[in-house]
Design a protein around this nucleic acid. Structure first.
Lengths: 332, 332
DNA sequence: TTGTACGCGTTATCAA
DNA sequence: TTGATAACGCGTACAA
């Protein structure tokens, strides 16, 4: 691999001149520049970014941390991050933690040592105290999945309010016995959505049957397992509010396997509005969140942070909206 | 951010000693080590990986390049890569190209300049000639989506043979008028699957109606668009062979919207066996490919390449298998 | 306009 | 066992 020295030697100039051609492009004779460029081409030279980054103290790369890309939801969030980043000539790289704190610490190490200029956390497995300690001076923004104990700016929706509205929607459709398929305490968004569900049920004077509140997780498998457990009880609720669209899809599929049809026999509501929810049969009534915008805004905040400013506001709550489809019907 | 010098100063030793404590841990007095470690803790020191990588000429990071993570299929492939990588203490980072050669060149730049030790390409937008020129000495392996003109080892399935078998399966179910939803020439796998389709149809003496061969792409939207075009013709085929499960799902959904039910009115076959295909209603008959193993084997090859050996064999064709589900039924 | 030389933060060699 | 110091490849202040 050719270095800047090789180029300088071949072009018959000093490394400084080569560097000047490469970077500013100013203060160099056209003839000299020509020689340098042809040497670069001849040697197929690319500047070693390790050396450059070390010297410049910036890498123009940012990290997106998430538990898994198999969760369809994140893909448009990342797109938002990427497009904002690209405008400022940043590249983004994705790291997966698979819910493993060790893997997350590994990525944190890269951040601490300036392998990347900053990060957007879409999920995190660490607690606020540890992260606060680790994150000293590292530009980080949280998006979607937010832990308010983290000492970082964030952008998300109001999960609790969204869940309130979703539950109220079900109630207004005439459903009275409503179950909730959540993800337990693993992630805050699920907890907040459960809160919203409970609050609204109580506000409407409707009882919550705890055997219909099942915490299996966000994924398709979670929906299937929760539905299986639901079927073990003698009676079914009128409707189920699921913590995610994938969970809802799994539940609908599992119920169908036992002859329980959605929405004929039971209504199922999702959350997120991923592509699957409009394609699924039946299509899934859900709560849309502005995935692209969440990502874009988070990246804007991160850029401010990298620039040394404190973004203001440093917490951003974006709008959500119920999207009516086929999986919820009025209670007859 | 503290550097090794700060640590050395605080501990009252030289940087060499600090480095020894950090790396080999040998040849250093317990007492000295204790002092160093407490200085490290006090200063919250982490070695700067840019400096280390520059010096060691390795980063222990590898890049996975793909067009988009919204394609569910890749997630298990990446998992295979990650688990093999982790065994050798490599971290993996994902970069998306979104089908844009410029973005891909950007990532290539990182590789050329040793920001990462090597890469697995799950897709690529460049042609063989350009890549051959760029890839001089950079360890790269292709997986899944393979261009045989690339000068790299690869691992994949036999797409053509798999498509032959899938088509034959449809024929054996009694279908005679069969359509193909592909992705055109954007990626080789689609072309090879189309070849297999055509070969088998001809071999069975069945005519191919070109208006039923539609190239819209791999995604859900592609399946929808292709189905829309299909519906514009007066008559429908007995069955459609789709290039991917997501495409099949889109097609099934679109047909259902027009009252054409799968598999009652038409059979639809997918490809890949992603999670969606077992959850979808109807569940999708498809061809499984060993996603995890493809990733794992590709990473094994890459490690050999990084180690300076040429892997042998340097092309690996793994097995596939038809999975029967609900979306294909016998022609009555 | 160009070149010399230093520093970025490490690791590794060599001498003490 | 430890320390001084030379790389690694680059950018840039300063001198020429």
């Amino acid at each position: 691999m050719a270095t800047i020295k090789d180029v300088a030697k071949l072009a018959g100039v000093s490394v400084a001149t080569v560097s000047r051609v490469l970077n500013q492009g100013e203060n160099v004779q056209p003839e000299t520049e020509r020689k340098v460029r042809s040497a670069i081409k001849a040697l197929r030279y690319s500047p070693n970014l390790l050396g450059r980054n070390l010297r410049r103290r910036e890498t123009r790369k940012i990290l997106v941390l998430l538990n898994t890309i198999s969760n369809q939801f994140y893909s448009r969030v990342v797109r938002g991050i990427e497009e904002c980043a690209a405008e400022q000539e940043y590249s983004v790289m994705i790291g997966m933690t698979h819910g493993d704190p060790k893997l997350e610490r590994n990525f944190l190490e890269m951040l601490k040592t300036k392998l990347m200029d900053g990060a957007v956390f879409l999920t995190s497995e660490l607690d606020g105290a540890e992260l606060a300690a680790q994150l000293q001076g590292i530009p980080v923004v949280q998006a979607c999945e937010v832990q308010s104990t983290f000492p970082t700016p964030w952008v998300s929706i109001d999960n609790r309010r969204a869940a309130c509205e979703a539950t109220r929607y079900l109630v207004e459709k005439g459903h009275r016995q409503i179950g909730f398929f959540g993800a337990g305490d693993t992630y805050g968004s699920s907890r907040q959505r459960e809160e919203g569900f409970r609050l609204t049920m109580e506000g409407a004077g409707l009882p919550i049957r705890e055997e219909w509140v099942l915490d299996e997780g966000f994924g398709v498998g979670a929906g299937i397992r929760a539905a299986e457990r639901l079927l073990e009880f003698g009676s079914l609720p009128d409707a189920v509010f699921c913590v995610s669209d994938t969970c809802a899809a799994g539940a609908i599929r599992c119920l169908a396997g036992e002859g329980v049809l959605v929405p004929r026999d039971i209504s199922v509501m999702g959350f997120d509005n991923i592509r699957l929810s409009e394609v699924f049969l039946p299509s899934i009534t859900t709560t849309w969140q502005p995935q692209y915008e969440i990502g874009y805004k988070a990246m804007e905040m991160l850029l401010r942070l990298i620039g040394g400013e404190e973004p203001s506001p440093n917490r951003l709550v974006l709008e959500h909206r119920i999207i009516e489809r086929e999986s919820v019907s009025p209670k007859n």
